[in-house]
Design a protein around this nucleic acid. Structure first.
Lengths: 193, 193
DNA sequence: TAAATTAAACAGAACAGTCTAATTATTTAC
DNA sequence: GTAAATAATTAGACTGTTCTGTTTAATTTA
């Protein structure tokens, strides 16, 4: 039997609240309220708000990395079709989420990446992890002559990654999937071998 | 003879401060300090912090739109070369700005686009304006068979726009121009007719 | 019993925004 | 053209709230 609250539950609340509302727009009290915990318990687990945010990013970054890895490992389609189904799913998820245009790590890095080195570095760590997973799929697609060989797997992964976050961010103000769909069509047409 | 302070100067300070530090991370007092004005003067010109931010976006959005229009109107190169020189310049500017990865409108829309409809709508207005300028150059490039005809000018403009902001945001944590250069090479290779 | 956790009152700083007074510019009256 | 009246702007002290983080005590688990 553990104690009443645990870190992971609070981190999950933090993920949800930060993702939807940003970092500076959210006060500790909002986290406490949504998690249903008193302040003392929060500061028992976390040193500061910044430390908390960093752990939130870390937990999400790692779990998302595992999830991506599993997705591509389990995907029975050809490499480029795996990439397509992955991004098609991401687009669907964002639509279902009512175009909140939210990736916690991307939002955080845009909002505070320049002022907060700890958060920027944490964000970059996970971006790099995700990019390597994408790059390994791209490499397989290149071996099968599905994907252009004119660029390295990592370069193409960066291209997919940045492009997707670009259109994802765009939906924050358009609230419409049409731009994501266009991006999808164009990108996969362009990277084809 | 006017009065001591004027709106435009304060808006310019706001542009600078918001661009570097974000919206919720900046207090009115910081604006006052950097602009060298007392609080009463600020609230004489602006209703609220939100109203101020909206006017900051508007001023920058419009002036940047004019600047883009002039740039392309004055550009003596072929359409696709104008686009290339434009983005090459944007990349250089971001490098000179020490990879602060900053477009005020993009930052604002990512940070508060989901919670603040007024700011989201203002941001979208200017994005659309900029996109139309890009699209008109793309259209000329298509007429000259420099740019692929497989997509509409606006679709290609959206693609350039979102892609650029995607890699620009990426530099917030990488602080390195290499990813922007890769994006540049790939994108202009891809959209070529 | 000892250590960890829970609980909430508390502290000091920072927050957006208000208020009244003094100053400056502009308009009106003659 | 000048003086008086009006309007706009400047100035900063002040308000009430919210912010992160502290503290101390009670409770729970090992």
């Amino acid at each position: 039997m553990g104690y009443k609250y645990n870190k992971e539950d609070i981190l999950n609340v933090g993920f949800d609240v930060f993702r939807r509302n940003g970092y500076h727009n959210v006060g500790i009290n909002q986290i406490l309220k949504e998690a249903g915990i008193p302040k003392g318990s929060f500061y028992n687990f976390f040193e500061t708000k910044e430390d908390f945010a960093q752990q939130v990013i870390k937990q999400y970054g790692e779990s998302n990395g595992c999830w991506m890895k599993d997705y591509f490992d389990d995907c029975s389609l050809s490499p480029i079709e795996c990439l397509k189904s992955f991004y098609a799913m991401m687009i669907d998820l964002n639509e279902k989420d009512d175009y909140s245009g939210c990736c916690l790590v991307n939002n955080m890095s845009v909002e505070v990446g320049r002022q907060n080195n700890a958060i920027a570095s944490e964000a970059n760590t996970h971006f790099v992890g995700w990019l390597n997973i994408l790059a390994s799929v791209v490499a397989k697609g290149q071996d099968l002559k599905e994907i252009t060989n004119e660029f390295t797997p990592l370069q193409l992964a960066e291209y997919l990654h940045a492009g997707f976050y670009g259109v994802l961010s765009r939906t924050k103000v358009t609230r419409n999937r049409v731009y994501m769909d266009i991006w999808f069509d164009m990108t996969f047409k362009f990277i084809k071998a």
